[in-house]
Each structure stands twice: as C-alpha cells, then as structure tokens.
C-alpha cells in the first residue's frame, strides 16, 4: 500500500520537478541577464572604473596628453595594449606595468627599453609617483590618484600598499592657519 502511494506521489511530482527545474533555470537566467545589464550600466556611468593612476605623456612636438591606468596592464603603440600611446616612437608592445605599494613597476617587453635619463637603458625599473621616465620619444610622468575614502578591494589596497594610511590621514580636514600678512603701511 505504502509503495503504491509512493509510486502515485512520484508520478504526480514529476510534473512538479519539471516546473521547479524550469523555474530555477528561468530565475537563474533572468538574474544573469539583469546582473549583466547592471554591470554594463555601471561601466557606462563610470568609464574610468578601476582607474588608480595617470600617465602624463609629453610628446616630441611638445603636445601633452593624459592616459588613465588600472592596477596593471600593457603600454605600447599596438591595439592589443591596455594603454595605447600612438605617434610617440613606442613599440607595438612596449612595457608591462603593475602598480604596487603606490609605485609603478615597469617591465619592458622584448627588445624595448625604458630610460630614466638619456644614458641609462633599463629592462625593469620602479617609478615613484611624480617621477618621469622615457619610452620611445615620449617623456612620461607617473601620477597616482588618491581616493578620498580608503578602498575595500584587496587589489586596490595592494596597489596603494602602505600609502593607504597616508591617504586616510590626508582625508581629515586640516586646520587652516591664517597668518596675518603684514602690509605696507600697517605700522
């Protein structure tokens, strides 16, 4: 009797299982499509997502251009590069960079080289914020963008490194000391 009851229940529930499967798959698909739209929306609203530094490039002719940097990437003249700097004498893939502890670690790719000054050719170097280096014909300055709020992402934390505490310290509003300026004739 109990087995008959089980068989009846199993036969009835197979429609329920098919419906449950359809609902699970449908809901998961809906969530995926909607979350995909959400990610696109964020990317559309913030084109500079993940940007933590800038490269200020001074071209041979004197023109200055600003490029944004994520935590890591490749710089060169080719389309495959994350930061494409054309018309500056850079190779197709010139160097790979990684921002660690607030500094920029550069590794030249292939036969490309980096110069800190006109004499020294380097394959690997670490550039501190505000310092310049030469790649191809361009003089490039590395500038870190400090956030007003400490980041929570482990990737960004690693990029800023020990400098996070300095960032936090800087966020506090400083007391402005107003000095009285002596003007001529005050006495």
């Amino acid at each position: 009797m109990a087995v008959d009851l089980f068989q009846s229940a199993a036969l009835m529930l197979r429609y329920g299982f098919a419906a449950a499967g359809a609902l699970i798959a449908g809901r998961a698909l809906y969530m995926t499509i909607r979350d995909g739209g959400r990610a696109s929306s964020i990317r559309a609203q913030a084109r500079e997502t993940g940007v933590i530094a800038n490269l200020i490039v001074k071209f041979h002719g004197g023109e200055i251009k600003k490029y944004t940097l994520n935590v890591e990437g490749m710089v060169g003249a080719g389309r495959v590069c994350d930061v494409r700097i054309a018309r500056a004498g850079l190779d197709r893939r010139h160097f790979f960079y990684e921002i660690v502890n607030g500094n920029m670690k550069i590794t030249a790719i292939g036969h490309s080289r980096i110069r800190i000054d006109d004499t020294q050719e380097l394959r690997e170097t670490i550039v501190r914020p505000g310092r310049e280096f030469i790649a191809g014909d361009a003089v490039i300055r590395f500038v870190v963008l400090r956030q007003k709020k400490a980041p929570i992402s482990p990737m960004t934390k690693r990029a800023y490194g020990n400098t996070i505490s300095l960032v936090l310290k800087d966020v506090k509003p400083k007391r402005v000391i107003r000095r009285r300026v002596r003007r001529r004739g005050d006495d």
């Binding site: 609203q45 997502t49 993940g50 940007v51 500038v143 870190v144 963008l145 400090r146 992402s153 482990p154």
Partner: peptide, 19 residues
C-alpha cells in the same frame, strides 16, 4: 569590492592627484 570602490568614487566625488 572593486565595483563598490568605483561606485563610491562615482557617487561621492573625485580623486585627488598626488605626486
């Protein structure tokens, strides 16, 4: 977490350049 950082940056203000 990266996305959260970005959203905070978008909605609460900009960065400050430091050299």
């Amino acid at each position: 977490e990266d996305e959260y950082d970005d959203l905070m940056r978008i909605t609460r203000g900009q960065w400050r350049e430091e050299e």
